[in-house]
Structures are given as structure tokens and as C-alpha cells.
Simulated assay, not measured.
Amino acid sequence: MTAALIGYGGLLEISDDAGSTWTEIAEVFNMTPPSNSVDIIDATHMQSPGRDREYILGLNDPGECSMEMNFVPGSATDTFLLAVKASYERVKCRITWPNSVIWAFDGLLTGYEAAAPTDDRMTATITFKVTGSTVATPAAAPTNTVLPAISGVAQVGEVLTAWAGMWTGAPTFTYQWEAAGTPIGGATASTYTPIVGQVGDAITVVVTGTNAAGTASAESVATAVVIGA
């Protein structure tokens, strides 16, 4: 049985502060990761056997990394990339693959080129010159770093919406809504609408993140108690 994967679910993040915070590069649809090559050094000398050239391996060239993305002028991603380019500083990059393996490397943003065809979507290509080694980290179970949250008014008939929070490990999410700490049967979507029987109860949502290495759950802060319509 094959273990092949498609690229869907991959994630590119960049840190311009030595890894304290990471910014997701939004709407990437194609990634070409760093591809190392080794310099070839001509070591031929006057006594090389058979008049044949001789070679030895030299230094490792970490190569480049490029990504294609949907181009949205003025977006948070556009603003961030322009700032990185203007800084002329190296940044930390990490690619989280669909199976949660992470490739991390330092890079210099050498290109940010947009294309705006008349009858197709606008796209942009970003190119990093990789500096130093690319470090691969095995898949790890997801970890919640910022708790889930609920938006909306806790009122009968009003839709509440769950925000999954922030996680490491690029997980996929499932949801379980609770009223007064008790799971609500069938309430497993990212939205929930309180009913009359829940008046006076506070609503929470438990978000479970899953990737190839495992699962973890985190619970939101409770809403105010549900009020009537």
C-alpha cells in the first residue's frame, strides 16, 4: 500500500524575530522546498592516471526555496513580505508538510514577484536563498498554544461560531459543543445555535486537533449564560 501524499494541508510560516513568533504565508498553492547540491572541485594534477580529470566533493550549497501564492495586494501577507524584503535581513522559515514533518531553515528573501493576468487570478512567487542547513523534525502530536474561542451572542436562535485557536503541528480540527459542561449530542460543527432548553447555561466548545502523530484537545472559555430569544 502506498504512503503517497498530496500537498494539500502544507503550511509555510516565517519568523522575523528569531522564532519567537511565526507568521503564516496565506494562500500558498505550490511549494518547491530547499534542494541541496554539492560543489564539484577539479582536483586533476600532472600525474592523474590516464590523463583523466579527477574530482572531489566540495561544499554543500543549500539552494533556494520558492512558493507560489494567490496575490492579494494590501493583505496581511503582502504587507509582511514587503517588510521582510525591505529589511535585507535573514529570516527563519519553516514548512510543515501534510504528515506534520517540519523542515526549518534560514533564508534571504531575494524575490517577491506578482503577476496580474487579465482573465485569471493574480498570483505571486516568493523566492528565498537558503543559508545554512535545512533541519527536518519528525512529526509530533499537535499542541494548542492559544485557546479556542467563541464569537456571537449566547442567545436562543443566535449562531455561535468557534475559532479553533492556534496550534503547532498543522492539525485538522473537530468540534464538540457543551452546555454547562455537558456534551451536546450532534453538535460537532464549527457553529452552534443555542436552544430554549439551554437558557441559563454557559456554552463552551472543545476543539480536537489531529495530525499524523496524534491528537490533542483544548476547551474554550465559556460564553455568558444563554438568554431567551
Rank of each mutant, 00 (worst) to 15 (best):
T125F: 00
Y55Q: 10
H45K: 07
F105D: 03
S35D: 09
G50W: 07
D39M: 09
C65G: 02
W97T: 10
M122T: 03
N99F: 05
I56H: 02
G19H: 01
S15F: 02
V84T: 12
P98Q: 08
N99H: 11
T127L: 06
L12S: 05
A115K: 13
T21W: 01
W97C: 02
R121V: 11
S37L: 07
R51K: 08
M69F: 04
L11T: 07
S75E: 13
D39W: 01
C93N: 07
P73L: 11
T110N: 08
I56T: 12
V84E: 09
I56M: 09
D119P: 01
A26Q: 13
S35M: 10
V72F: 14
V38M: 13
E24Y: 00
G63C: 10
P34I: 01
N70W: 07
Y112E: 03
Y88F: 11
A124S: 12
G107V: 03
G58F: 05
S75N: 13
P98N: 08
D39C: 00
P117I: 08
G58S: 06
M122R: 04
G50D: 10
D106I: 00
P49M: 03
C65F: 07
R90T: 10
T127P: 00
E27Q: 14
R94E: 05
L108S: 06
G107A: 08
L59Y: 06
V72I: 15
T118I: 12
M31Q: 07
P49G: 02
D16N: 14
I14C: 05
W22D: 00
K85L: 15
F128G: 03
P33Y: 01
S35L: 10
I95C: 05
G107E: 08
N99T: 11
E68K: 11
H45D: 13
T21A: 04
L59R: 13
A116F: 09
M69P: 05
S100N: 12
I14G: 05
I95S: 01
A116M: 15
L109H: 07
G19W: 00
L109M: 10
D120T: 06
A26E: 15
T77S: 14
R53K: 15
T123H: 03
L81F: 02
S37N: 13
T127K: 14
Y88K: 14
N30T: 09
S75D: 13
N60E: 15
T123P: 03
N99E: 13
T79A: 14
R51H: 06
T77N: 07
A115H: 09
M67R: 04
E13T: 12
P49N: 02
T79H: 01
D16H: 05
V72S: 11
V38Y: 07
G63F: 05
M46S: 14
I102G: 03
E113I: 12
T23H: 14
I14N: 04
M122C: 06
T110H: 01
P117G: 08
V28P: 03
